[in-house]
Write a protein that binds this DNA or RNA. Structure first.
Length: 461
RNA sequence: GGUACUCUGGCAGAACGGUUAUGCGUGAGCCUGCAAAGCUUAUACAAGGGGGUUCGACUCCCUCGGGUACCUCCA
């Protein structure tokens, strides 16, 4: 599998000979997560599920930034504590992402639970003369890291001239960034240099190295983190460990609204909660995977609606397979195999989920076509089902479950309807159909039998 | 201003030098008691503009232009 690496700007082979170690920058927990977070995390969710499907072990570490000025500000506004705020939004996070059918990461380390590791990390940097203490905190000396700017392709001198940062006179260089900030406002921790809290970038360096080692496979996050966050992480980590940090940097494009980046400051945020309520997890996942991960995607009702149409086809396919009982038609194993390979190849080639979805939908369409032609036999169906399920599992698409008692009730109603139809009492028959519709059960009349499917309830429809 | 990415049909979106995918939408027809689902078929002589390189370019190079992101916290 090859992934386009932001640092080297070429596709790099992912080493799958042993466990693949991935560090994903998670969220700062001071507010609700939005659809932009969802995209990044869904992309990595599918990545790990794909590798797992190949039988490859995954270690996925995703942090929670739970100490930050924004959290503290929020706590002040809400007359609460930083801890309460972060706890609340971590709970919120899991609610959202469980709802999106995202598999839990191996571990979700929190900055506040790794203060010791962070302090040790900073100590090493100071020992090496790369960090220094000043009046307001401990800073990382950018000039001591010769390759600074290699990820974001920025030149140090250009950065300096364009620097608009409020300059702390105590800093040796305006580009230097804080690894430890002195402070008396809670939350604070004691450190060898004074009371305070860690800077933003240091936690990811400390925690990724702790959990995944000096040199791990993939480091991911949104494109907007390239600078300064990931640039600084590289500087800190490589200075500290003297070895290459992540092998591959994989960055996910932004979700835009009307072509503009979604962000708190613009106020055009779509919360996951909101979108989930209206569209459900499957459609959101299809939407998030509909373009190449590295490019931006524009959020719009039309696109979600398009994915709803597609989702209905998947549901139809699912139930056609469940109810298949025609004569088995000619060899379709070749087709299944080919599409399975297409699917995998697409993902192997810089994780092209769009092409993988094409293969998936082709299988769906072929199946629906066979079914409509009364050519879908049980053996056929079993073969397709197996492959389709595999793809669905990787993509994280879930067909809602249905209980046995529901099934019985449906079968009974369909039987009644059939009798009415035979006697040409169509009004009565249609009433039953309406009733089933209300239960979100849709009927598909084949030539000599009727099958049913349970449709996911989509509020926006 | 710098850097990166991007510019393909009504919309979405691929192919990374050599049959103009694919999906949605739309039109027509078929199937059906009616629906739904499904099927068939039709839908750009496209590639931001202009130059090259090449037997041949959406794909490589140059140039001009548009867009977005980052350069401050941000997935």
């Amino acid at each position: 599998m090859k992934i386009q690496d932001t640092l080297s700007n070429v596709e790099q082979e992912v080493d799958i000979s042993k466990n693949v170690k991935i560090y994903l920058c998670g969220v700062t927990v001071y507010d609700e997560s939005h659809i932009g977070h969802a995209r990044t995390i869904i992309v990595f969710d599918v990545l790990r599920k794909y590798l797992e499907n190949k039988g490859i072990g995954i270690e996925l570490i995703q942090n929670f930034t739970d100490v930050d000025d924004k959290i503290i500000n929020r706590a002040q506004i809400e007359n609460s504590t930083a801890e309460e705020i972060s706890t609340k939004y971590i709970e919120n996070y899991f609610k959202d992402f469980d709802g999106l059918n995202v598999k839990r990461a191996t571990n979700y380390p929190k900055a506040t639970e790794h203060i010791d590791d962070i302090i040790k990390f900073i100590e090493k940097l100071i020992e090496k003369g790369i960090s220094y203490t000043s009046k307001n905190g401990v800073y990382f000396s950018v000039s001591k890291f010769p390759n600074y700017g290699k990820l974001s392709k920025k030149k140090i001198d250009e950065l300096q001239s364009g620097s608009r940062i409020g300059i702390d006179e105590q800093k040796k260089d305006p580009l230097d960034f804080a690894v430890w900030k002195f402070s008396d406002t809670e939350p604070t921790w004691d450190s060898p240099w004074g009371k305070g809290r860690p800077g933003w970038h240091i936690e990811c360096s400390a925690m990724s190295v702790k959990y995944l080692g000096n040199n791990f496979d993939i480091h991911g996050g949104g494109r907007d983190l390239i600078f300064p966050h990931h640039e600084n992480e590289i500087a800190q980590s490589e200075s500290c460990t003297n070895s290459q940090f992540a092998k591959i940097w994989m960055h996910v494009g932004m979700v835009t609204i009307d072509g503009e980046k979604m962000s708190k400051s613009t106020g055009n945020v779509k919360s996951i909660k909101h979108v989930l309520e209206n569209w459900g997890p499957n459609i959101i996942r299809l939407f998030c995977l509909s373009g190449h991960y590295s490019k931006p995607i524009d959020y719009s009702e039309e696109l979600l609606k398009e994915n709803l149409t597609k989702w209905r086809q998947v549901e139809t396919c699912h139930y056609e397979l469940v109810h298949a009982n025609n004569e088995n038609s000619e060899e379709i194993t070749q087709m299944i195999k080919k599409l399975g390979i297409d699917f995998d190849n697409s993902l192997d080639n810089d994780f092209n989920t769009h092409l993988a979805l094409s293969a998936f939908f082709q299988l769906v369409k072929e199946t629906n076509k066979l079914a409509a032609d009364e050519k879908l036999g049980k053996n056929n169906a079993d073969g397709i089902k197996k492959e389709l399920k595999r793809m669905q599992k990787i993509l994280g698409l879930l067909i809602p479950e249905i209980t046995d008692s529901e099934k019985e009730e449906i079968d009974e109603l369909i039987k009644n309807r059939e009798e009415h139809r035979k006697e040409k009492q169509f009004e009565k028959a249609d009433k039953i159909r309406d009733k089933l519709n209300e239960m979100n059960i849709e009927l598909i009349d084949h030539k000599n039998r009727t099958i049913w499917m349970k449709k996911e309830r989509i509020k926006s429809q």
